[in-house]
């Protein structure tokens, strides 16, 4: 009986571990080759890059890093792209989390790795260029309090300052926050999250400062209504969001190809133009500095998605082949 089955029908009952093996082999292959895959940036990623591009060197921004390594395939790339842009432009930032006790250490490690890449005179210094404020449980209450008054919310908090001999200093006396009297004085807030903490930020902080978000592909659709309503100025979704950011950082956005050959094009936002980031590392081009995990993982993502499409098609053909046999029998 079984020798009369078509190849599609036989495939219906094959061991799923073969499928897993194919996935492992192909995705691993994808990690070792990182070709230049042309892609138009999502409109929401454009919004994020344009918002970042509009910041000045003296601005201070808030980075709410709410992720841990379970989603690092996407969120580590997000944070690295954000930090690389911020560090290249010498923007000051305050990093904290409202979501997970592990998150501060994870983002601290990411920041340290990026800082180690920079030459000594360009390294970001604690208390001078950035602040790490750690974990605040109860995202709802903490965000509301932050929105009410940033000064009273972080009142009395102290930080160590690099080059200060280990003495602590009130965070509002540091160069990072000394000019911040109210939340509106911050250039933007960017929430890097795999969860709904961005919902709370939109609910409590909307209208006070530009809100941007970098989120996993799973959470992305949930945040799109806020982006479409203009409550979120920019949104990088999933690994494609990381790739979009890196491509815009490396080549700029909608620039003249004669001057910027790597500039990416956005049909929908052709009037928006943004420059590539200038590498702070001597001898490294913008592309060398900017292209990281997004470029490294994007081929693997394409391969995995292609495999999934093929699996869906093969599964359905098998089902129809079996149905046809039943009808003919």
């Amino acid at each position: 009986m079984s020798e009369n089955l078509s190849i599609w029908e036989k495939m219906q009952s094959f061991d799923r571990r073969w499928l897993y093996l194919v996935l492992i082999v192909l995705v691993t292959f994808g990690l070792f080759v990182s070709p230049d895959i042309p892609a138009q940036p999502d409109e929401s990623s454009v919004g994020l890059y344009v918002t970042l591009d509009g910041l000045d060197e003296n601005d201070t921004i808030l980075i709410q890093s709410d992720w841990t390594n379970s989603t690092r395939g996407e969120t580590l790339g997000h944070l690295e792209a954000l930090l690389r842009t911020v560090m290249a432009k010498r923007i000051k930032f305050v990093m904290y989390t409202f979501a997970d006790p592990q998150a501060p250490q994870v983002s601290r490690d990411a920041l340290r790795r990026l800082n180690d890449e920079l030459p000594e005179d360009k390294r970001y210094k604690l208390g001078i260029d950035y602040l790490e404020l750690g974990y605040f449980p109860n995202a709802e209450g903490a965000t509301q309090s932050l929105g009410n008054n940033i000064r009273t919310f972080w009142e009395g908090r102290k930080t160590r300052v690099e080059g200060n001999g280990g003495d602590e200093m009130d965070i509002f006396r540091t160069p990072v926050l000394e000019n911040i009297q109210k939340l509106e004085d911050c250039g933007m807030i960017c929430v890097v999250t795999p969860s709904n903490t961005i919902d709370i930020a939109v609910e409590r902080l909307s209208g006070k400062l530009p809100i941007c978000c970098m989120c996993t592909g799973v959470v992305g659709p949930q945040i799109l209504p806020y982006y479409n309503a203009g409550q979120v100025a920019g949104l990088a979704i999933g690994l494609k969001g990381v790739y979009d950011m890196e491509m815009m950082m490396a080549g700029g956005l909608n620039l003249d190809k004669a001057d910027y050959p790597n500039s990416v094009r956005s049909d929908k936002y052709s009037e928006n133009k943004a420059l590539p980031v200038v590498s702070p590392i001597e001898g490294k081009s913008s592309a060398d500095y900017s292209l990281g995990r997004g470029k490294k993982y994007y081929a693997a993502l394409n391969i995995a998605l292609a495999l999934m499409v093929l699996a869906v098609i093969a599964g359905n053909i098998g089902m129809y082949a079996a149905k046809r046999r039943e009808r003919n029998a």
């Binding site: 897993y20 390594n69 690092r72 995995a304």
Partner: peptide
């Protein structure tokens, strides 16, 4: 953190299996 990431990455196998079956 690596084990955390490994646990999460297993979803890829389930998704592919679900896509096929």
């Amino acid at each position: 953190q690596q084990m955390d990431a490994a646990m999460f990455s297993m979803i890829a196998f389930f998704i592919l299996s679900a896509a096929y079956r």
